[in-house]
Design a protein around this nucleic acid. Structure first.
Length: 591
RNA sequence: GGUCCCGUGGUGUAGCGGCCAAACAUGCGGCCCUGUCAAGGCCGAGAUCGCGGGUUCGAAUCCCGUCGGGACCGCCA
């Protein structure tokens, strides 16, 4: 070993000990005579002192040393002179008086500073990710992620789960996201697909009698990137046999409640037990199925109060079966015309044709696009419903329900950001249940599963599949945290007939179903336990726990928005011979 | 496929039609300095302003295109 101790562990108790340390030069302070070096390793920082009077060789060696050089020092731990302790450092009461310095590897000047927390262009960070990861914030994030995964493994192990690996090379599936394909050398024209999730395999493990399975599973989806989406990402994939919805939810809730208490003790839960909402309720109140509960600004249905208002916009929407809903932007009555126009412009992105409003400035006249159409009584009723007070701004959207919900949900999030309503130290977990089993896809003219193909409908709603599928509910549950869906799960179908019925409902031809899922259907005929599970997204959860704005910050080597690894420069062209082996010919895109 | 934003020394920013072959901070190099911890002081090097074209007497600054990056829509069962 190059070191007897880590840099971060030395304390008063070590005073007098001779130690060897090795690490990176975090910072060097040369006083002409005495020289200080802050030596850093993953475990912390310690001050090394070289005094030319007592150890001229060591002092001489440190003359050349620069930031990020890797060195080894031999020295003695001693108390710092009174008054020169550094309370900001865990090791600040002591220092290491060095007698010997060995340079293990010099370093070029880094393209950005490691010892400072400053904004650096993300492309540069990614190109030199190995340097970026040295920085405190990133090393903290990577450590946090380790602790999250470690907690999960320990917890599930203690609860009788076993971790089973499933193949990365598997089979393409219809539905869902675009697959990453891997050409087969041995089978010309055939392809493996990387798993979008180990869904079928974990169900087969239930058939296999594993009963309690989990995996920290890498998943692959070839879709466009977002701040919370990468081409490859990590799920905690877990599945249990002989359980009902309640059992899986209880387990996941206990797991994550205990985990955040241990991993992020400075954060508090918004509520425990976690609030639960039906899909219907969460949409009515927040306009989206992954709400942020940390603030109010809830949506209110005002259809009954405006139906005969004489205001064309509202009446037209209602006449076409549309919706009129509103939210109260607390304290925003002083928004200027321009600011409201900006909100309106924002609303148009989501299909709204406009925004109606009532502004209630504290010491001025009410301003409104439509209040003049209302009787004093209905105006009063609106105010009451929206809990309006002087100083508030009431925003109304009238349109198709989907547009109304989405627009108001977006405005709610936008306004909360502007007003800084969300406490960053609060974790608002909640559950959303009772999703529609399927929804009608206009483009494809067929029913689409809300969750996935293997979700079981509510037992009492199975008859509805034949008569009114849109009314059936699925045994699905989503885990939501601070504006993000961080996990989804369901009780699965374990019966061949029901599974085939669902395939048929979503328009999967029987022969296609058999070709793609024959193994699963067949397995269901050999004694399959009722089972269900959940798949929380590790990246998103770590992102939120770390307080980061995107998941790249909690992934050691992420890809950029164009799905490119800018450090390794992947993807990249390959040798013609490789293509030949794979029976692949590249057809360049037109243009 | 689409919309929007960004691109100035190594890094982060300022400059937004002439005062700019470009300013500040930090980093980098040299010298001085024995108790600092974002050490300090002095000196110095370093960008033809992503690239190409255009407008103009004059472009870092305006316009068009292009490349790179980011946010979002579509997409993501």
């Amino acid at each position: 070993m190059y070191k007897t101790h880590t840099c971060g562990e030395l304390r008063r108790a070590h005073i007098g000990q001779q130690v060897e340390l090795a690490g990176w030069v975090h910072r060097r302070r040369d006083h002409g005579g005495i020289t200080f070096v802050d030596l850093r390793d993953r475990f912390g920082l310690v001050q090394v002192v070289a005094d030319p009077a007592t150890s001229p060789q060591a002092h001489q060696k440190l003359e050349d040393v620069r930031n990020e050089w890797v060195i080894q020092v031999t020295g003695t731990v001693r108390s710092r002179p009174p008054g020169s302790e550094n309370p900001h450092l865990a090791t600040g009461e002591i220092e290491v008086e060095t007698s010997e310095v060995r340079i293990l590897n010099p370093a070029k000047t880094t393209p950005f500073s490691i010892n400072k927390d400053e904004e650096v262009d993300e492309n540069t960070r990614l190109r030199y990710r190995y340097l970026d990861l040295r920085r405190e914030q990133m090393s903290r994030n990577i450590l946090l992620r380790h602790r999250v995964v470690k907690f999960i493994r320990d917890f599930l192990n203690d609860h009788g789960f076993i971790e089973v690996e499933t193949p990365i090379l598997f089979k393409t599936t219809p539905e869902g996201a675009r697959d990453y394909l891997v050409p087969s050398r041995l089978h010309p024209g055939e392809f493996y697909a990387l798993p979008q999730s180990p869904q079928q395999l974990k169900q087969l493990l239930m058939v296999a009698g594993v009963e309690r399975y989990f995996q920290i599973a890498r998943c692959f989806r070839d879709e466009d990137q977002r701040g919370d989406r990468q081409p490859e990402f990590t799920q905690l994939d877990l599945e249990m046999s002989f359980v009902e919805r309640e059992d899986v939810m209880a387990l996941a809730e206990e797991l994550f409640t205990k985990m955040v208490a241990e991993v992020t003790p400075h954060k508090r839960l918004f509520a425990s037990p976690w609030p639960r909402f039906t899909y219907r309720e969460v949409m009515e109140r927040f306009g989206k199925d992954n709400p942020d509960l940390r603030y109010g600004l809830e949506l209110k249905d005002v259809r009954d109060l405006v139906e005969n208002s004489g205001f064309k916009v509202f009446e037209a929407a209602l006449a076409q079966g549309g919706d009129v809903r509103a939210l109260n932007a607390k304290g925003c009555a002083d928004y200027t015309r321009k600011q409201i126009d900006e909100l309106t412009e924002y609303a148009r992105n989501f299909g709204a044709k406009g925004l109606a409003y009532i502004a209630l400035p504290k010491d001025q006249e009410m301003r409104s696009t439509f209040a003049k159409f209302l009787t004093p009584e209905s105006l009063e009723a609106l105010m009451t419903r929206l809990e309006a007070e002087p100083g508030d701004l009431l925003l109304f959207v009238a349109d198709r329900p989907a547009v109304v919900f989405e627009t108001l949900a977006r405005l709610r999030v936008l306004l909360a950001e502007r007003l800084q309503l969300a406490d960053p130290d609060v974790l608002a977990f909640c559950w959303v249940t009772d999703f529609p089993f399927v929804s009608w896809s206009e483009e494809e003219q067929r029913w689409d599963p809300s969750h996935h193909l293997f979700t079981s409908p509510m037992p009492e709603d199975i008859p509805l599949l034949d008569v009114d599928p849109g009314k059936a509910r699925g045994q699905q549950y989503d885990m939501v945290l601070n504006n993000y869906e961080v996990g989804g799960g369901s009780i699965r179908i374990h019966d061949r007939q029901l599974q085939e019925k669902v395939f048929a409902l979503i328009g999967l031809e029987p022969d296609v179903a058999r070709e793609r899922f024959g193994h699963l259907l067949e397995a269901f005929e050999y004694g399959t336990p009722p089972h269900g599970g959940i798949a929380p997204g590790i990246d998103r959860i770590c992102m939120i726990l770390a307080g980061e704005p995107n998941i790249r910050e909690v992934i050691a080597f992420p890809k950029n928005q164009a799905a490119r690894d800018v450090m390794g420069d992947a993807p990249s062209p390959v040798e013609p011979k490789q293509l030949e082996d794979l029976h692949i010919r590249v057809v360049p895109p037109k243009n």
